[in-house]
Write a protein that binds this DNA or RNA. Structure first.
Lengths: 221, 221
DNA sequence: GTCTATACTAGGATAGAC
DNA sequence: GTCTATCCTAGTATAGAC
């Protein structure tokens, strides 16, 4: 694959020998965005983290927004890939939901910078994206986010139908569930030591109790 | 009070005839920070929202960070003032916690821009604040935030002691509770129509169930 | 008190050397 | 592919008029 053919096509399309470079940039960018947010992060900083200058970064991404979007996209790819099988698995809605919540929590802890970028992406307004291409890219990412959330909504809806979960608006319930977990990206600061198993249990138990119908508390205390 | 005496003292200290102007600036700033975040908000934009130029803003605040901090401070003042009486009231822990959760949700909905600034403040790093004064100001605000959270932690701890709430780490439980509610500041976009009563119920019920000990489910279904 | 300059810098983005 | 050099805009902050 001669270098001419991959000159500034869409970053994702330009996969080849230098895919590893792209991933390096991606993860440096995720780290930088995590620490300072999109607006306060400079391409110089990202480059510095790579031991390079912005020339390198701009070779792969034509703008800071594109770089941000690609981090976002990568995060959603991982998330969907992880959660989808659990959502469609062959178990009761409440069992599936517990697994999904636990897995989502693990995604947050294990890919923290990426998940924080997702949070920033949710807060981000389309008004910020100047070019039409960028608006399109952001819309696509929001759509991916919606599909992800829909996996949870479907399971919760099922659970309400079976009576395992309390009646109510499944969408709001999912906002509550994901809020419980995603809020971690706001206050948590990843240190050397990983959080204990109790950490995860506390959140997952809270969620399953929070959803459970009062009538079906016997499912497992 | 001659105008000389209030020349650029701490913004909060400079209360007087023009307190109303300060509040106008504060709420315009909250709105602007809500929409675009701290870094992407320009003082020009804030001034424009006031139908003025930045001269006005800089007369009251010596930097953008100071302005942000004052919005944050005002938000925490309102929050503490609202929640403290409920936390100390003469009821069972679970009753108090329900009231506090409901009140916190209402604070979010009714002072949305201010609450969103609080969220941004939590994400913000001290590394961002350059001057020593600013670091001190941010520390004080973080301390206020901690006191606020502690009100919840105390009630939850009591509830665990009485057996109303499930055993576990009260701090993590409070992170879960506040996450459920504060996450609303991330995804919610205030429109003309206020959310229904069902909106609040869904969240508060989820929270109370999430905390409740399995043994004490009979308290009220 | 508020406005209109204006100084000054950070940082996005591009061009062109290598 | 990556770097250096450069352009250029946006935006903080201040000075000084009114």
């Amino acid at each position: 694959m001669p270098s001419l053919t991959k000159k500034k096509l869409s970053p994702v399309a330009s996969a080849g020998l230098d895919e590893s470079v792209r991933l390096e940039i991606l993860s440096a960018a995720a780290e930088a965005f995590m620490k300072n947010g999109f607006a306060a992060t400079s391409i110089d900083t990202v480059a510095e983290m790579l031991g390079a200058t912005k020339g390198r970064v701009y070779y792969y991404y034509k703008s800071k927004a594109d770089l941000f979007f690609d981090v976002y996209r990568e995060a959603m790819r991982i998330n969907l890939e992880t959660i989808k099988p659990l959502a469609k698995s062959d178990q009761t809605p409440s069992e599936r939901l517990s697994l999904m919540a636990h897995a989502h929590l693990m995604l947050i802890l294990e890919h923290f910078p990426f998940q924080r970028v997702v949070t920033q992406g949710i807060e981000m307004h389309l008004s910020g994206s100047t070019t039409p291409d960028q608006r399109k890219a952001l819309s696509a990412l929001i759509a991916a986010r919606d599909r992800y959330e829909q996996l949870f909504v479907d399971v919760v809806s099922e659970g309400i139908a079976t009576g395992e979960f309390a009646a109510g608006d499944p969408r709001l319930k999912v906002k509550a569930v994901l809020g419980t977990l995603n809020w971690i990206t706001i206050w948590y600061r990843p240190k050397s030591k990983q959080p204990s198993a109790q950490f995860a249990d506390e959140f997952v138990n809270y969620i399953t109790r929070g959803l459970r119908s009062p009538n079906s508390y016997w499912h497992n205390g």
